[in-house]
């Protein structure tokens, strides 16, 4: 993997539209075959586990984007044909935000989003 492959325009994008454009996704269709498994409330905004799952055939790429981070794109994963399109990563979130999973399958883009709450903490029963 050469350093030059890193998709600088996509990672530098500061709006969701720019990030999606840089990834070649335009306006992805929402799909029930894309799933995000994550806690509704983050235990720690610095470490938020997110599992991204695609049930779409021929999934080539899965990306994770955080709407309210300074740079939206957190990660992009490219699958080999034998790789099952289910990846788990841990991301940083500065505040409560929608997290989007973007999937490229058969050359088309699909997405799903979930709100993850980042809270100040304290109190309890």
């Amino acid at each position: 993997a050469a350093f030059a492959n890193w998709d600088k325009p996509a990672f530098d994008a500061k709006t969701m539209d720019d990030a999606l454009k840089a990834l070649g996704a335009g306006a992805p269709a929402n799909s029930g075959d894309v799933q995000i498994v994550a806690s509704d409330i983050a235990e720690n905004g610095a470490v938020v586990p997110v599992q991204a799952i695609s049930r779409l055939p021929n999934t080539e790429r899965i990306a994770i984007l955080v709407e309210k981070n300074p740079n939206m794109l957190a990660a992009a994963f490219d699958m080999a044909p034998d790789t099952i399109p289910e990846v788990t990563a841990r991301i940083k979130m500065g505040q409560t935000s929608n997290v989007m999973v973007l999937v490229k399958a058969d050359g088309k883009f699909y997405a799903a989003a979930k709100e993850i709450k980042v809270t100040l903490g304290g109190c309890g029963g």
Binding site: N5, V48, A74, F77, A80, T83, I84, T88, R90, K92
Partner: peptide
């Protein structure tokens, strides 16, 4: 698997997947 990451990935990164 090949992945590209930005700085929004947590310190001491974790990655899990299946093949």
């Amino acid at each position: 698997m090949q992945a590209q990451w930005g700085p929004s990935i947590s310190k001491n990164p974790y990655l899990a997947f299946k093949v």
